[in-house]
Amino acid sequence: MIEAKGLTKHYGRKVAVDDVTFTVKPGRVTGFLGPNGAGKSTTMRMIVGLDRPTQGHVLVNGKAYARHAAPLGEVGALLEARAVHTSRTAYHHLRAIAATHGIPQSRVTDVIETTGLGTVAHKRVGGFSLGMGQRLGIAAALLGDPHTLILDEPVNGLDPEGVRWVRTMMRDLADQGRTVFLSSHLMSEMAITADDLIIIGRGRIIAAGPLQEVIDSVAGTSVRVRSPQAGELADLLTGAGVTIQSLEPGLMEVDGLSAQHIGETAARAGLVLHELSPRSSSLEEAYLRLTAEEVEFHSGAVGDFSEPQVGAA
């Protein structure tokens, strides 16, 4: 469980994170989505106490990270793949971290096996590919067998096999009841991995909640309708909250009504349908829409999406 309240970070005059409040729940994979420079990494660094908040606070399982007796048992974090001295071997790097918490060598060997680093464990980290660096970062995060995992762009640089591996592992960890919080700027990855979503843009939360709700709240669903009597059908469907767009003669896109409703309306009026296909907009579309608005407008313009509690809706 991660709880951020009014979390704010200024670097000089630049506001990196601006009064952010959110909760990340255990047993779920929560995606932290935003364009580069939106404040994801800064927020994550504040969670593990590397950066000091200008205002507000963030708690992990009810306490500030640094106040836990054994911090690595609370939170394992992959913040950057390159948080490692390049002249040291992967094994020694992990051994040094393990030493701080009295973690036995057997656990070091375990996470090396788990992350598939066995063949390179005794090579210098400087020669690692980006993907191997990520695996090492994940291995370090797993060392303390933490209740909460924070992973900043974990699939960055991984090959497809590695991406699937991370995805499976996130799922396993969440299913064990742990809190999994991962950031990405890849919307497609989030659509597959995350249960909950927090979208951040320019330091502010612009949407938060269960994945599908966030998508729906932004984009809604539209239905593509093909009918030789499209004009008549459009007249019947017109109403409050419904937008109908004619794409070409006999083809229209209806926003704000379900396919079921449109089909039944057509049947009652005896109108012929050639196509009736609901199109739920992708997370990618929703995301672009959200972040575009955040770039274009000042605060307030996106007030509808500032509901902060994940899963509260």
């Binding site: 054994a70 788990t114 699937r164 499976t168």
Partner: peptide
């Protein structure tokens, strides 16, 4: 493909990072 990072959960006991361990 299947990962089980928690297999040692019951046996892994962490100690606080005091000066000696640091």
């Amino acid at each position: 493909g299947s990962t089980a990072p928690a297999r040692n959960r019951s046996t892994l006991r962490l100690q606080p990072p005091n000066l000696g361990r640091t």
